[in-house]
Structures are given as structure tokens and as C-alpha cells.
Amino acid sequence: MESFDSLVSYAWFILGGAAATLELTVLSCTLGLIVSLIAGLSLLSKKLLVRWAARTYIELFRGTSLFVQLFAAYFVLPLAGIPLSPIQAGVLAIGLNGGAYGAEVVRAAIQAVGNDQREATIALNLTRWQAMRWIIFPQAVPLMLPTFGNLAIETMKATAIASLISVSELTFQAQMVRTQTGGTALPFITILITYLAIASMMMALVRWLERRLSRGLVSVRT
């Protein structure tokens, strides 16, 4: 049986991985958000080519499994002359995968904004861009938020598989402790609790944002 001190130092070593988990989560969510806005708006474009490009991206990334995309980013892209660090490969795969799911959320939320709003923008002689920027989009955001919150948590959970391409995040650190000490309960229970805490904090943040952004809007409950 190991001493209490060494158990504590192992726990600290594992928790050091939380920084990488958070880094992966924040970067992947940012990339995913940007891509889902671009792809979601492209789905509503008047140009056939733009719509097709967005549709192809979405089907490709939703259809081929995140796990496969991660390995492709890490092992296959270097063959094409694009070497990526483990973190970069992780962010690229997880972000683009999340963006494919997010794009449909953006499209659905924008289409859910009432037609009377659209007619009003035409009556006021706004351009398409002005209408989207000032009238349609701000009303669509509260509709997107709950689903985006869930996607953000899915993204956080997905960062665990980046341990398999040697990003030293929580799961990777736990595996290190397991292989070096043979102890299993301590490392895995530690990271389970940490993931649970991170997810719960993210949920609280999304709830707060929901209240904040739906202020002044009547009946946005979906």
C-alpha cells in the first residue's frame, strides 16, 4: 500500500491534465462555433454551389465518425504535407465534427424565426445582410443556445479520445498513472469526478447565458 503522500501527488499529476482538457474544449468549441455559423448560413444561401459545399461538409463529417477523423488528422494529414501537433489535430477533428452538427442547429434556428419578421425587414427596405445582422440572427440566438450548450458538453466529452493521439489531458494522465503504478481506482475515479465537475460548470454557464440572452424577448421557450 502506498503512502498517503504519494497518492496525493498522483492525484495532482492527473489533475494537471485538466488544463489540456480545458484548452482542447475551449479551442474546439470556438472552431466548432465559427464553422457551424459559416456552414449553417451557407445552407440558407441563394447560391446552389455554396449550399452544396456546406451540405457535403456536413454529411462528410457527420457520417465518418469522430474517432476516424481524429486518426486521419493525426496520421494521414502529415502524409499530405500537413504535419499537426497532437493538440492541433485534436482541435481540428473535434471542432470540425462539432461544427457539422452545429450547422444544422444554426439553420433550424434561423428558419424558426417568424416570417412576419422577414416581411417587416422587406417593408423597411433592409438589405439581406442588414436583415440577418440586426433582425433575424439576434432572435435566432436564444433558440440555438440550449442545443449549443449540449453540443459544448459533447465536445468536452469528446476531448477524452484525444488521449489516444497522445495529448496529455485528463484521460492520458490517468492512463499514465495506471500503467506506472498499477493502481486503477484512484486515477479513474479522480478523472470521472473532474469530468463531472467540468460538465456541471458548463451547464451552469449555459443556463446563465440563456437567461441573459433571452432577456427582453417574449416566450422564447422552445
Binding site: A158, A160, T171, A174, L192, Y195
Partner: peptide, 11 residues
């Protein structure tokens, strides 16, 4: 729901 599948599998 709030913890990764991979970690559950390891568990």
C-alpha cells in the same frame, strides 16, 4: 451523461 464514454469503458 456528463462523463466521457472512453473513461467509462476504461473504468
Amino acid at each position: 451523461r456528463r462523463t466521457p464514454l472512453l473513461v467509462q469503458l476504461y473504468f
